[in-house]
Amino acid sequence: MRLPSSRHLGLAVLAAVLVLLPLALPGTYALDVLTNVGIAAIVCVGLNLLIGYAGQISLGHAGFFGIGAYASAILVTNEGWPPLLAMLAGMALSGLLAFAVARPILALRGHYLAMATLGLGIIVSIVLSQEVELTGGPDGMPVDPFTVAGLELTGPLAWYATVAVSLLAVTWLSLNLVDSPIGRALRAVHGAEIAARVCGVDTTAYKVMVFVLSAVIASYAGSLYAHFAGWLTPDEAGFLRSIQFVTMVVLGGMASTFGAIVGAALLTALPQFLTVFHDYEHVLLGAVMMATMIFLPRGLVPTLATRCARSGG
């Protein structure tokens, strides 16, 4: 029983880090940055299932993030829905949209799949910009606080705790899925697709499932973000946001759940602490992506893990 124990060990380390971080980095600003890290990490853990395990690229996942964020913003702020219900509605909408487009989109490969998902994300962000009545257009819209049963989620520590628990839960679900017939089937497709099919694996069905799951997770993170930030613009659903998510996954390490979290942490926190990163974000994202592909094609965490294992054993 080697795998379950490594899964629990990883979760325990993640939980310890999530508890220790606010102690090591106190203050409202640091907590806000950490909360943003957590939200991006939730998206990346889901996206890694699609990119790292199913081997399918998506350059449009910010679209699902945006659908969740705006579902919460519009339904809660304009329509007065309970935030939890609005969040679930956003997840359902994202899931349905992902399911509807998954079969035609996932039938495409390589550049064509990248272009199709790119188009999907751009359509979502254009709709959000154009529907000024609903969304406030490019100027954005305010979002009411998150309340459950009359209790308002407020203050940086409460937000950090909520996002940290969410990240732990999503990580647990992701690790469970990877170590199941579904996760093994997806890895088998990477290893030798024809042999996987001879074993009875219906590859298309699993690709569709993971696409939907990653969209629902992105939508959930989007809803959290909308209430946390309190102000939403279509940029959150934009092309650059999608590229950020993909770069985080690739940098941290494809097919590594903890790698996705490390990638999200680095690329969310660095721009906050290094203003130069903020000014040249496009250039630096491109540079990070290229450098990763050339020097660390497997990403940070898998490469380091192999090195440690080699020097240790």
């Binding site: 017939p181 579904i182 093994r184 890895r187 290893g191 030798a192 074993c199 694996v201 799951l213």
Partner: peptide, 25 residues
């Protein structure tokens, strides 16, 4: 050979067992 080289020996056989497993998401 069409072995799943990205997996362990046991996992390779588990993929072979795929159709007999409970596969609900």
């Amino acid at each position: 050979l069409r072995v799943f080289f990205n997996m362990t020996v046991l996992e390779n056989v588990l993929v072979g067992r795929h159709l007999h497993l409970y596969r609900g998401a």
